[in-house]
């Protein structure tokens, strides 16, 4: 699908530090050698990662550069790995 033009400050959620607070700009097709890109997109959508949603990284693991991460989205907390979170494009929100 076509993405909105990313804002200059846009980054992917997989690269964001713990405590990051932002808004989802879009999902990008990411071929990870794991799931097909479409399937990954569907699964992220099913867990509520849709455009416009607010996300916050609450926790991260000890290994692999803080992997996995626990992401707060609305009233849910979802654990996922940074490599899959890289498919989620976000812009920071200051609050």
């Amino acid at each position: 699908m076509s993405l909105p033009t990313p804002a200059p400050t846009a980054l992917d959620l997989g690269a964001a530090p713990r405590g990051f607070l932002g808004r989802i700009l879009g999902l990008r097709q990411l071929e990870l050698g794991g799931l097909p890109a479409e399937e990954l997109e569907l699964r992220l959508l099913e867990l509520g990662f849709v455009e416009g949603a607010r996300v916050e990284i609450l926790h991260q693991g000890l290994f692999g550069g803080g992997d996995p991460i626990a992401v707060r989205i609305h009233t849910a907390t979802i654990a996922l790995r940074r490599r899959e979170a890289a498919a989620i494009l976000v812009e920071p929100l200051d609050e």
């Binding site: 990870l32 799931l35 907390t77 654990a79």
Partner: peptide, 11 residues
């Protein structure tokens, strides 16, 4: 074969 991603809700 692709490995499954880890995605899990923390209740």
């Amino acid at each position: 074969t692709p490995s499954e991603p880890f995605m899990l809700e923390l209740p």
